[in-house]
Each structure stands twice: as C-alpha cells, then as structure tokens.
Computed example of a mutant assay.
Amino acid sequence: MSAKLSSAKTSAALRRSARVSVELLLVLLLTAVALWLLGRMWSVVWPLIVALFLTTLTWPLARFLRRHGWRPALAAAVVTVLFLLVAAGIVALIAVPVASQSGELTDGVVEGIQKLREWASGPPLNIGEDEIAGAFDTAVTRVQDSLGSMVTAVGTGVSTVFNGVVTAVLALFLMFFFLKDGPRFLPWLTRQLPGRLATDVPIVAERGWDTLGAFVRSQAFVGLLDAVLIGLGLWILDVPLVLPLAVLTFVSAFVPIVGALFAGLVAVLIALVSNGLTDALIVLAIIVVVQQLEGNVFQPMIQSRGLGLHAAVVLLAVTLGGSLTGIVGSLLAVPAAALIAVVWNYVREQLSDPPQQPETDDSPTGAPVPS
C-alpha cells in the first residue's frame, strides 16, 4: 500500500515538475521573442530611452513652472530651450579653451614625440635613428595597405555620428512631449486597460518612473564626485584647462567605460604636453584611483541605496549588460535591473497583501517625482 502511495506521489510530483518546466520554457521563449522585437525596433526604442532619461532630469523644473500657473506647452518649451542652452554652454566651456590653446598643445605634442625619440635612442634601449625611421616607414606602409579598411571605418564612423544626431534630435522632441503631456499618460492608460490591469500597470509604471529618476540622479551625483576629485588633483598639479576637463569628466560619467577612458586620456595628454611626464603619470594615477573608487565603492553604494539594489547586484548587472550588448548594455543594465526589482516587489506584495488603489499625481507618468 505504501509503495502505491509513494508511486502516486512521485507521479504527481513529476507531472507538476513537467508543467512548471513547460511554463518556464514558454516564459523564456516569450522573453527571447520580446528581445528580438526590441532589437528590430531599436532605432525607435533608443531615442525613447534617452528621452526618458532627459525627462527625469528636466521634469522638476517643468513641474515647478506648471505649479506656478504656466501652461504645459509653455513650460515644456521653456525647459527644453533651457536644456539646449545648458548643453551648448557645456560644449562651449570645453571646446573654447581647448581651441584657444590648440597651438600650444600641438607644439607640446610634437616636442613630446621628439623627446620620446631621444629617450628611445639612449640607454637602456639604445635604438638607432635608422631603426626608428625603419619602424616609421613600416607603419606608414601598413597604413597605406589598409587604406580600404580605413575608408570603411571612416564611413562607419560618419554613419554613427549621423545616427547619433538623429537620435539626439528625436529624443529632444520626445522630451518636449513627455514634459507637456506626460501627466495625462497614466489616466489614459488606466482607461485603456481591462480589469485588474487597469490597477496593476499604472502602479508599476509609477514606481518605475521613481526608480528611473533615482538612477539618473545617482549617476549625476557620481559624475559630479568624479569631476570634483579629478579637477582638484589637476588644480593642485597646475595642469591647464582644469575647468573644461572637470566638465568633460562629469559629462562622460553618463557614458560607461568609454566615457571615463576618453576623459582620462584627454587629461593625461594635456598634463603630458604642458607639465611633463612626471605630472602626467601622477594624473594617470589620480584618474585610476578615482575610477576604481567610483566603480567599486561610490557607484554601487549610491545606486544601491537609491534604487533599492544591493551593491553586488549593481556590479553584476553592469558586468552582464556590458558582456551582452557592450556600452549600451552597461548604461541600461542598472535601471533595467531596478525595474525588474520593481515588478518583482509588486508581484510579491500582491501575493501577500490586498491590492492598493493607485494614487495619481502631476508627473510625466502620473508618478510623484521627488523634489
């Protein structure tokens, strides 16, 4: 009798396991299809994501103007124009000082190359001028042989720049419409969804908006911290163009991996051509230390506190996103993980607590944005 009961329990357990396995496979299949569709629509999805990031930065000002009697269209237009002016001012703050000292920097680069050749020709390397000239000729020959691939690369770069400009323009227009019509979204969505979804989806969207805002604010704070620390080190070493380099460091913080490398390379190059090799090495050491502190201490701690994620989860998300889709994956990994956590927490709440009625507010998604 016990053997029969045991056999029945085993069969029931196997059937449940098989059913759960099939359901998991269906979920994975639907996820793969959704990711494939997302990739096919990426030219539209990416400007939408950028616009959402920009809206989280500019919405507090737009909300302030709306609460003081400004019409939504006028408030959105003023905020969009101010954002463009600030962005243009940042570019000018970086470009104008660099352009004014471009001649000095060029002379310094040439002098640095000459010093490098003199150092290579002396001990301990003792490389002769003929060998240096031969290596240079070999490099020129290789460049000429690969001219076709270089032209292709240049064409790809031009296409990338053009796509970036199109994305920026489209994101600005979307940001304007989000600022203008965003508070109408959740009421409209509530009317379109049937049954329980009319309650669940707006609440998740509201919490997702708060999470996205927390991510952008934490990223801006980390960039500001990097700019202050690196700028202070450059100022102590009396490196020129301290303010443009600090601004460049802040802006590049929003572009993971490549942004930090680019800003650090520019700072080291300017220190090399203006102050010499010793100060350039010191600047390099400062940048490496600050970037290590940012990636392993500041960013995980700040983002984990603002997004409700453990620091280890933030590090793993960035690593996974970068390994899957490169720079874009690194940029979107943390907010994606935070949004997944928002959905999971809401599902867990609904399984344990009675559903709560959503609260509406004057925000681009109907969500209250912290002041």
Score class of each variant (00 low, 15 high):
L52W: 06
L52Q: 05
F53A: 07
F53S: 05
F53R: 09
F53T: 08
F53K: 06
F53G: 07
L54G: 03
L54T: 04
T55Q: 08
T55L: 06
T55M: 07
T55H: 03
W59H: 10
P60V: 14
P60D: 11
L61I: 10
L61S: 09
A62H: 05
A62I: 03
A62Y: 01
A62Q: 06
R63W: 02
R63P: 01
R63D: 05
F64D: 04
F64T: 04
F64N: 03
L65Q: 01
L65I: 02
L65A: 01
L65D: 02
R66F: 01
R66V: 07
R67D: 02
G69C: 02
W70R: 03
R71C: 01
R71N: 03
R71V: 01
R71A: 06
R71W: 01
P72W: 04
P72E: 08
P72A: 13
A73T: 09
L74M: 07
L74T: 10
A76W: 04
A76R: 05
A76M: 02
A77D: 02
A77L: 13
A77I: 04
V78L: 11
V78R: 03
T80R: 03
V81N: 01
V81E: 01
L82K: 00
F83P: 00
F83V: 08
L84R: 00
L84G: 14
L84F: 08
L84T: 05
L85C: 08
V86D: 02
V86R: 02
V86N: 02
A87H: 00
A87R: 00
A87W: 03
A87Q: 08
A87L: 06
A87S: 07
G89P: 05
G89W: 05
G89R: 03
G89E: 09
I90T: 06
V91E: 04
A92G: 08
A92W: 03
A92Q: 11
A92P: 00
L93M: 08
L93S: 07
I94A: 09
A95I: 08
A95T: 06
A95C: 07
V96L: 15
P97D: 12
V98K: 06
V98W: 11
V98P: 11
V98F: 15
A99V: 14
Q101V: 11
Q101E: 15
S102F: 13
S102E: 13
S102W: 14
S102H: 13
S102L: 15
G103R: 13
E104F: 09
E104A: 15
E104H: 14
T106R: 13
T106S: 15
T106G: 15
D107P: 00
D107A: 15
V109A: 15
V109R: 11
V109C: 11
V110N: 14
V110H: 13
E111R: 14
G112M: 12
G112L: 14
G112K: 10
Q114Y: 09
Q114H: 13
Q114M: 11
Q114G: 13
Q114V: 13
K115W: 12
L116Y: 12
L116V: 11
L116D: 09
R117T: 12
R117N: 09
R117W: 12
R117Y: 12
